[in-house]
Design a binder for these strands. Structure first.
Length: 257
DNA sequence: ATGGCTGTTATAAACAGA
């Protein structure tokens, strides 16, 4: 079974690319981020016609997450995170699908740092880590997939020295990511490719894709109950070269049956 | 260091992204 995460950067503007990619790679389950559309503008019909049931948590202009499945309709278990009634951003959705509990997330960017946006990122991360611990406690097979907006190590940044003060690579946020993983999660891509340069994002600026000036910020974390099924992992790097493409690259894992 | 690009929309003397 193939499970993918893809920050589409606008689900309607990106619809031709999304459909082309779905048809080409046929993932069983997909977590989408940055829908940039309210619930009523989610392209449900086109995605249904492509063979996918979906649930989504949208928002006008910004954020927005969804879970797509061609192995049965996702059974939603949660949307949003507990711990902050003031938080209006649509950044988390969770469902049981294909015998796995899938959490799809879009962690805040957090720039500029320092500032209120970075504070919000750290607080959101704390709430997420608390929820993640609760999921681990269930002993269920769980996958937390999405755009974490964190490069975990220097291997995940094309020029680490330029990113040390950035909200995606600052010590506080790298520590938060490391602490999350140390709860017992497996970072699937890094686990299978411990020394390889793998990027999931290339800026639209300055020809970043062609220069391979990328970041690894989209991750799939596996709970102990499912980690033994991990078979392969990678990115659909070529999709970044398509016309009208997202700045992120689809990122996936393959599980043994 | 700066500015480069893209999607969404209050269509910009805008904002946010990473």
């Amino acid at each position: 079974m193939r499970i993918a995460t893809y920050n589409v950067n606008g689900v309607n503007g990106r619809l031709p690319v999304l459909l082309r990619w779905l048809e080409e790679t046929q993932p069983h389950v997909v977590c989408l981020q940055e829908l940039k559309a309210p619930d009523e503008k989610f392209p449900e019909e086109a995605i249904k016609a492509a063979g996918y049931d979906a649930i989504w948590h949208g928002q006008k202009s910004w954020n927005g997450v969804a879970i797509l499945s061609r192995v049965g309709k996702p059974q939603e278990t949660q949307r949003g995170l507990a711990g902050d009634p003031e938080d209006t951003h649509s950044r988390y959705i969770e469902a049981a699908v294909g015998g796995i509990l899938i959490g799809g997330l879009y962690l805040p960017n957090g720039n500029p740092r320092p500032g209120p946006k970075f504070d919000y990122k750290l607080r959101w991360f704390e709430r997420f880590a608390e929820h993640a611990q609760g999921l681990l406690d269930t002993k269920l097979p769980v996958i937390l997939a999405g755009d974490y907006n964190v490069m975990p190590t220097e291997l995940d940044v094309y020029k680490p020295e330029r990113w040390t003060d950035d909200a995606l690579f600052a010590p506080e946020i790298r520590h938060a990511f490391a602490a999350l993983v140390s709860q017992g999660w497996t970072d699937a891509l890094r686990h299978l490719h411990p020394a390889e340069t793998i990027y999931t994002f290339f800026d639209y600026f300055r020809n970043a894709y062609v220069r391979n000036a990328g970041l690894r910020i989209d991750h799939l974390l596996l709970s102990p109950a499912i980690a033994p099924r991990l078979d392969s992992a990678g990115t659909d790097h070529h999709v970044r070269g398509w016309e009208k493409t997202s700045d992120h690259v689809p990122t996936w894992i393959e599980l043994k049956d």
